[in-house]
């Protein structure tokens, strides 16, 4: 099997998952598609190095995260916050309550990435620190803060999931 064929096999198996992760980060399917595209192109270019990685999936995720954070840095002034709701309104009206994805959108890009990697991708603290190139202590403290903020944002009946 050639390098290109190996890449295609891996990419076909992981593209959907990468796009889901990208969507959770940016909450925009079209941007998620672009980020996935960018990440796969960069992965293709570094494929020979990538296949030597201990965890190829994590390597691909790292490229995607970098693409997302780079995008955020370039476009930080242009991103809108869709579905902005005032807290009293959604607290009183269940129809308006925030979804988890809405709540995630209230976190900073870096904190959102931490939560997604920890609780969606099931990465360890060390792995998150490695992917985001952050100190372990920062990952731990930001995880705590992010979960606290999510608790504040989500409706009471949704908080049972945090009880554990």
């Amino acid at each position: 099997m050639t390098d290109d064929e190996e890449f295609a096999e891996f990419a076909n198996a992981h593209a959907e998952r990468l796009r889901n992760t990208a969507f959770m980060l940016c909450r925009d399917w079209h941007l998620a598609q672009d980020l996935t595209q960018t990440a796969l192109t960069k992965l293709f270019l570094s494929w020979r190095r990538a296949v030597q990685a201990e965890n190829l999936t994590a390597y691909a995720q790292k490229i995607l995260l970098r693409a997302y954070l780079d995008h955020r840095r370039r476009r930080s002034s242009t991103e809108s916050t869709p579905g902005v709701l005032h807290e009293p309104a959604y607290r009183e009206n269940p129809e308006l309550r925030l979804t988890m994805l809405d709540a995630l959108g209230r976190l900073s890009a870096r904190d959102r990435a931490i939560v997604i990697l920890r609780y969606f991708e099931d990465y360890s603290v060390d792995q998150v620190a490695d992917v985001l190139e952050l100190p372990v202590s920062v990952v731990k403290s930001q995880t705590r803060r992010s979960l606290t903020k999510l608790r504040e944002l989500l409706a009471a009946d949704q908080l049972a999931l945090f009880a554990g």
Partner: peptide, 11 residues
Amino acid sequence: PPPLGDVVGTA
């Protein structure tokens, strides 16, 4: 989500 499309071929 919209169809994934040919992201792999394009990459």
